[in-house]
Design a protein around this nucleic acid. Structure first.
Lengths: 187, 187
DNA sequence: CTATAATTTCACGGCTTCCTGAAAGGATAA
DNA sequence: TTATCCTTTCAGGAAGCCGTGAAATTATAG
């Protein structure tokens, strides 16, 4: 019962490690690369502000790698740079709030991936319109393709506006959920 | 005004091509590879049933590639195999309905990626519980990590059940949307 | 301004993922 | 059964992505 101090610290570290790997494997879901996710993960789970050297050591990766991925994380807005008086080094810390995290990821993916898809689809639609094809737009072949594209556009626009509404109301939704759920665990 | 026949057919094909490339570039959003998405795309946009040779020719890829990716598409349930009497070859066709498509993709991603994440997170939570760590679970360090993991679990479980409800009601939601929207285009 | 500390950039190499084409496997008709 | 047609499998190779480490750049202290 004496040497448990080292024990539980090691246990804690190994859980952190497990979490970081989990975060890394989720990266495809976020649309980022595994290392970028891991760097975020280690700061998120520990809640610590870290220097590049801390991260290099903890994840056993090179300085360049850390630098490049931190830059991306800053661009995404998932991580913030902070300074300490009397210390030249840059420190970094993760956004802490889960809802905010999720909102950022969803917003970025929408902007980077979904919006371009929508505009390409609209261009496809216009290329099949009577304005572009004249009377030939009446052909069954054309009508058929046009209908599919329109159905897609309708659907994606709907999803888009639904998610928009969801995120706009996320603060109140969150309050509601917190109230309803109390502090009573997850399930 | 005579030679427009070739013209508009080419225009149509080029729009189809554009769509297929769009579908390919969306693949990361779906969690599949670009070729798999393209194969699905060409069947979806044309609405045709196709043989392996049709697809090989249209996308300029090898037989083995088509075969492997069709197998995956069948596993996902995005494509069905159909037969024609008096023809030995296998024909394939895409699911037509946009909502069904989306439901399938979302369900598969959940099963393949989100569910495993949830169970790993639960394991992390249990490893930080008093049952596993004894009195050390009271330490601030541990409490802190445990809280983050619990917040995450709460959040993800909520999202999970929300999306569950969304998909369960997708038929009625769809009817409602169709009714409300009429046939009046996308925006 | 110079020296030093910290960070960023980027060419190169390693790794993973994907694709090809040929060979094996399977099904149908004769 | 054998011949023919079609599909699947898989070893090897190509292509793209990712990480490294050293050099270049930037920032700060003296």
């Amino acid at each position: 019962m004496k040497s448990t101090h080292r024990d539980w610290k090691e246990r804690l570290t190994s859980v952190e490690q497990e979490f970081v790997e989990l975060w890394g494997s989720m990266s495809s879901l976020w649309g980022i690369n595994p290392t970028m996710a891991r760097i975020h993960g280690i700061m998120f789970i520990t809640g610590q502000t870290m220097t590049m050297d801390d991260i290099m050591e903890r994840l056993a990766i090179s300085r360049g790698n850390v630098s490049m991925n931190l830059t991306k994380l800053l661009e995404w807005g998932l991580v913030k740079r902070v300074h300490r008086p009397g210390d030249r080094r840059d420190y970094y810390e993760s956004i802490r709030d889960v809802w905010e995290l999720f909102t950022i990821v969803a917003t970025q993916r929408k902007r980077r991936e979904i919006d371009p898809v929508l505009s390409t689809l609209r261009r496809c639609r216009d290329e099949l319109s009577p304005e572009a094809l004249g009377a030939r737009a009446e052909e069954d072949f054309v009508q058929d393709r046009a209908k599919r594209i329109n159905d897609l556009l309708k659907f994606l626009s709907l999803m888009d506006s639904l998610s928009q509404k969801f995120f706009e109301s996320h603060k109140s939704l969150r309050q509601a959920v917190d109230l309803l759920a109390g502090d009573g665990g997850e399930e």
